[in-house]
Design a protein around this nucleic acid. Structure first.
Lengths: 132, 132
DNA sequence: TTTGTAGTTTATAATGGTTCTAAATAACTG
DNA sequence: CAGTTATTTAGAACCATTATAAACTACAAA
């Protein structure tokens, strides 16, 4: 299994649950956005054994910390995650609440002119809200 | 009272509570960011009578709908609002969770090259995360 | 005024996503 | 294996937010 090494290399024990969640998250052609509930559903669909909700939360947070997932800053009652951890931005369709990737090449360079003393920029995230 | 007209003009009845919340939110030299809990505290400090939590929520949402407040898209367990409704962006200091305004003039123009069929851009929001 | 009505406020309950807990289980190391 | 530590799990707890429904208030029409 290709994920066993990935997990071990990040200091995470390659448990059955983590490997299965890796399959659901990363064994896909395209990256995608999800909430915990959506991920839980995907897991139910693709996997025979049950994985407890707490484990899904634990795993997603562990993966986020390791940089395998990113949270998407958006105002919603649920937290959105992205399996696309490359530098990119999002459209957010207010009508249906759906997110659409905006590749970095779709956005001109972002020039932040102001500096904050003693701080450096960790990331720049652009959210483009869409309406009809 | 200057807020009575403002409220009435937006189709909101100028109740005592709404006027008082206006004072707390808008009768300041500088704009500011807040969560509902922080606003509740401010209200307690500045106002003699009690305003119920539900009213604070109702009012903030009403003001947001009318465009007097903006939600700040950020991942937090609480929702952040901004009394600065002009077009601008934010630094977010990950260390202490504080937000800092980034005036539009501090950010070069943002060029969104991709279009989504039948949708138009309502807003563009940039969140610049800071670390030490 | 007075009165009717629609809008607001309020305390409290309900909701629901997320986190905590502590016991059972599984992975790892020697 | 045996011992240790990490992980999983079900369920409880947490807590921001929303819903409820009764009391109250602004307002307009008579």
């Amino acid at each position: 299994m290709k994920y066993i090494e990935k997990l071990r290399n990040s200091g995470l024990r390659p448990t059955k649950q983590r490997i299965q969640i890796c399959e659901v998250l990363f064994n896909t052609e395209k990256t995608f956005h999800f909430t915990i509930n959506e991920l839980e559903q995907k897991i139910k669909d693709k996997i025979d054994n049950k994985i407890s909700l707490a484990t899904v939360y634990n795993t997603v947070h562990a993966f986020e910390k390791k940089g395998y997932l990113k949270q998407i800053p958006i105002n919603s009652n649920q937290t959105y995650f992205d399996t696309n951890v490359t530098d990119h931005h999002h459209f957010y369709d207010l009508k249906d609440g759906k997110l659409i990737d905006l590749e970095n090449s779709d956005v001109g360079p972002i020039d932040i002119k102001r500096k904050i003393n003693g701080k450096k920029i960790k990331s720049i995230e652009v959210l483009v809200k869409l309406e009809d």
